[in-house]
Every structure is written in C-alpha cells, then in structure tokens.
C-alpha cells in the first residue's frame, strides 16, 4: 500500500503535483509525467499495477516505465514524502 506521510500535503498547480512536507516546510514539485505516475501509484496502491497502467497510457515498454516509476517512488520514500506498507 502506498500513501502519503501524515506530514505531507498535496495539491495540483498547472498540471503538476506540489507536495509540502509540513514538518520541514520544504516544497517538492513533480512534473506532469511524475504527477501522473504518482496518481497511478496512489490509485493502484502497488507498484506493479501502476507500472502496467502507465505502460498502457504512455505506450512505453514496461521495463522502461518500471525503472522510472521505481526511481520516482524510491526518491519520494527517501525524502520522507510517502510510505510503502507491506500488503
């Protein structure tokens, strides 16, 4: 299960996602593609389902999408923006 940390606020500005870590007052921006990937992650709740959908939407090879999505999610976890709970 993938979800935002309790201290993180999310909004949309100009087709981009803007996240604020309220504890540190640091803003993060995701570009349009990153925002969509994060939306799919949040909707699907797990990486593999989001990768399948993103590959369909962008008509891109799953392996390439997997690399991008994993890199995005790992960075967000490292920054303390999201949690990934074991299902």
């Amino acid at each position: 299960m993938i979800r935002l940390n309790d201290s993180v606020l999310l909004s949309r500005v100009d087709d981009e996602a803007v996240l604020l870590d309220a504890d540190s007052s640091v803003y993060y921006g995701l570009n349009a593609a990153g925002s969509r990937m994060f939306e799919l992650l949040a909707e699907c709740g797990d990486r593999e389902s989001a990768i399948h959908l993103a590959a369909d939407e962008y008509d891109a090879p799953e392996e390439s999408v997997r690399n991008d999505l994993n890199a995005l999610l790992d960075t967000m976890i490292e920054k303390g923006l999201v949690k990934e709970d074991a299902v």
């Binding site: 500005v13 100009d14 087709d15 981009e16 996602a17 803007v18 803003y27 921006g29 995701l30």
Partner: peptide
C-alpha cells in the same frame, strides 16, 4: 514559472 517551481 509553473507548478512546483512557481510555488517554491
């Protein structure tokens, strides 16, 4: 400026 860059 757009999106996250704008807000930052």
């Amino acid at each position: 400026l757009r999106g996250g860059a704008k807000i930052a």
